[in-house]
Amino acid sequence: MPMLRGFLTLLLFLILGEGLRFMFSWPVSGGVIGMLLLTSWLMLTGGASDALANASQQLISILILLIMPGVVGVFFLGDRFDGQWTAVVVGLIAGTFLSVLTTLLVLRRLISKQPAGERCD
């Protein structure tokens, strides 16, 4: 039951986000708007109920299960992207290598400038 009550809250914010997205034709998905609304709501009201925290944690812990039906589609693309696989694979791997390197260097530079007191959280 508590799990369902949390799920109800999530669905309410999802519908609210999707409704706003449609009404104002925002280029962002209803889920993202719902997430931002939920975060703001929690900051205003000062906390997530156990039911909501539970339901959220359960859903997030099965994210991999939820993306599997989409992921497996890549094995059934057939010849639709023939001749472009080099672009796809090199773009993904080299692009990710460069962005990981950039992120690490930028963060190291910025965080090492923080006072020592703030470093040990």
Partner: peptide
């Protein structure tokens, strides 16, 4: 058939707001 699972990605996105708040 799997839309029964993929539908849950919507509420799961909203759920990401909770750890973000925490």
């Amino acid at each position: 058939g799997a839309t029964w699972l993929t539908f849950l990605l919507g509420p799961a996105t909203v759920a990401l707001g909770v750890p973000l708040y925490q």
